[in-house]
Amino acid sequence: MAYRLYGIKNCDSVKKARRWLDAQAIPYQFHDYSIEGIEAAQLERWCAEQGWNILLNKMSTSFRALDLAQREHLDQERAIALMLHQPKLIKRPILDLGHKTLVGFKLEDYAAAFKALTPSL
Rank of each mutant, 00 (worst) to 15 (best):
P27M: 11
E36F: 07
Y6F: 13
A79I: 03
L117Y: 06
I54G: 01
H31P: 07
Y6I: 05
L97Y: 02
D32H: 10
Q50G: 07
I80Y: 03
N57F: 09
S13M: 01
I26K: 06
A25S: 15
I38N: 02
Q76F: 05
D75R: 01
Y3D: 06
D75A: 09
L84H: 03
R71H: 09
K100G: 07
I26A: 07
S62N: 09
P119D: 09
E49V: 12
L55T: 09
L102D: 00
I94E: 03
L68H: 10
W20H: 12
K16D: 01
L121V: 14
F63V: 02
A65S: 10
R71T: 09
G7W: 02
G98H: 10
A17V: 09
L5Y: 03
L74Q: 05
P93E: 10
R71Q: 14
I26M: 13
A17C: 11
D96H: 02
N10L: 06
N53F: 13
A112S: 10
Y28K: 07
A112W: 03
Q86Y: 02
A48K: 15
A2G: 01
D96Q: 08
L97K: 07
E77I: 04
C11R: 05
Q24C: 13
W20Y: 12
L55H: 04
C47F: 12
M1F: 02
E49N: 11
F30V: 14
L68T: 12
L43S: 06
E49D: 12
A40S: 15
Y3L: 11
A23F: 04
G98D: 03
H31N: 12
D32C: 13
E77H: 04
G98R: 12
K58L: 13
G51M: 08
G51F: 04
L74S: 03
R78W: 07
R4A: 04
P27G: 15
T118Q: 14
Y6G: 00
G104L: 04
M59I: 01
L66Q: 09
E108N: 10
L95Y: 04
P27Y: 05
L56D: 08
E39L: 15
F114Q: 02
G37I: 12
E72L: 08
I80P: 00
D12E: 03
A113W: 00
Q42R: 15
R4C: 02
E39M: 12
L74D: 04
E44Q: 15
V103T: 01
A40N: 15
M59Y: 11
L121A: 06
P119Y: 07
A81S: 08
A111C: 09
Y110E: 01
S62L: 04
L68A: 12
L102H: 00
H99I: 11
N53G: 15
E72A: 13
A69M: 06
Y33V: 02
Y3K: 06
A116T: 11
L74H: 02
L84E: 00
K106V: 00
M59K: 14
P93M: 08
D12N: 06
S13R: 00
L107P: 00
N53K: 14
Y33C: 04
I38G: 00
I26Y: 06
I35Q: 15
I94Q: 01
I80M: 03
F30Q: 07
L82K: 01
E108D: 13
H73V: 03
A2P: 05
K15N: 13
L55K: 05
F105E: 00
I94M: 05
W20I: 03
D32Q: 13
H31C: 08
D109G: 00
R71A: 10
L89G: 06
L5H: 01
A41H: 15
I38F: 09
A69K: 10
